[in-house]
Design a binder for these strands. Structure first.
Length: 348
DNA sequence: AAGACGGGGCC
DNA sequence: GGCCCAGTCTT
């Protein structure tokens, strides 16, 4: 892919960011490496509006990397509960321990070293290096791919790794030379993609007075292809999945077990998917639908009020007081289900 | 190179 | 219903 020269792209983006970019997001003030790192992990595949509150809550619970490293992974998953992509939480915990044990609690500033840490890939490593240490490195997230692809008119299929690879090379070329500009530039790419060059209704397609500063240079705009860029051909294969939940209640406690370490909702607490106590007096409750990006779940809950508590249970199984269950690391549909039911009343 | 991995928001 | 979001890791 050949990239033409877009005049003054980098310097104009920097000026734009300083005048019209975002400057008051929680992780933009007091940019310590710990705060920057946490925000970058939370923001992976997750929108800013979702992260803001969860970020503040997480920082309150784990104010620094030593506290995080010294906590149990279960406590971290509990705080992460409902945010999805739970590998992020497990890697976050692992990464904190590595940084404390091998780096004396201080993140390295070299993007290549950062990239070796659990949960930190190329783009996140660059973001941490830029925002925490002012190191020169290029990011390439969803926003940046869209901005670069449109302005340079890249109509290639971005679900192909070759196309993304060429965008990476281009992103490196565009970096400003002055280190004092790195933060504004990097933040500018994100801000411009998130607020102007958006997926739906980018400013160039709106009827209001706002104008895109690149409208006369953007190849997608000049050729009327803004709606077709970026292009992704690959379709998500959505599986329809049916799942049973066996909800055992005994004296104000609910039986939960920890899910396997691999697969969906790994290491989170949930209801058994089989009738492990072999009871035949279950009440079938209304089924629950839960939509994930690549799976549509239809869940069939069966409720059983036990008259005695089974003696033998395994590790990673537990009778949890109903009032405490919501404090565990739970998948979204499990916490939603628990909140919607009055199980304590049934058991009275 | 392709799939797995959550949940929310927008069309 | 499909697609995307401050992506990374595994196969």
């Amino acid at each position: 892919m050949k990239f033409i020269e877009i005049k003054n792209f980098t310097e104009d983006l920097i000026s734009w960011q300083r005048a019209q970019g975002r400057h008051h997001l929680p992780w933009q003030v007091n940019r310590t490496a710990y705060r920057v790192w946490l925000s970058e992990i939370m923001l992976q595949q997750t929108q800013v509006s979702t992260v803001v509150d969860r970020y503040q809550s997480f920082l309150k619970r784990f104010p620094n990397i030593q506290v995080l490293a010294g906590s149990s992974v279960d406590d971290v998953l509990a705080e992460w509960s409902g945010m999805g992509y739970y590998t992020r939480a497990r890697n976050l915990h692992k990464c904190a321990q590595v940084v404390v044990n091998e780096y004396d609690g201080n993140f390295p500033n070299d993007p290549l070293l950062l990239e070796r840490l659990p949960g930190i890939g190329k783009s996140t490593a660059a973001a941490i290096a830029v925002f925490s240490y002012g190191v020169r490195a290029a990011i390439l997230d969803g926003n940046v791919k869209r901005v670069l692809a449109r302005i340079w008119g890249v109509g290639d299929d971005l679900s192909k790794s070759a196309a993304v690879k060429s965008l990476w090379a281009h992103a490196e070329q565009l970096l400003p030379n002055k280190s004092a500009d790195l933060v504004s530039y990097t933040q500018g790419l994100m801000d411009f993609g998130a607020t102007h060059c958006t997926q739906y209704q980018p400013v160039c397609m709106r009827l209001d007075k706002k104008e895109c500063l690149f409208k006369n240079r953007c190849q997608a705009n000049l050729s009327n292809k803004v709606n077709q860029i970026p292009l992704k051909v690959k379709k998500i294969n959505v599986q329809q999945i049916e799942m049973d939940w066996w909800i055992y209640i005994y004296r104000g406690k609910v039986f939960l077990e920890k899910r396997p370490e691999n697969g969906i909702w790994a290491s989170l607490w949930s209801f058994p998917e089989q009738n492990i106590f072999n009871k035949n007096d279950a009440e079938k409750l209304n089924s629950v639908k839960h939509v994930l990006t690549h799976r549509h779940l239809k869940i069939h809950p069966y409720k059983i009020l036990l008259s005695s508590q089974p003696k033998k249970i395994k590790v990673d199984q537990a009778w949890v007081p109903l009032g405490d269950a919501l404090k565990l690391g739970l998948p979204k549909p499990v916490s939603a289900f628990l909140k919607s039911q009055d199980l304590a009343h049934d058991d009275a």
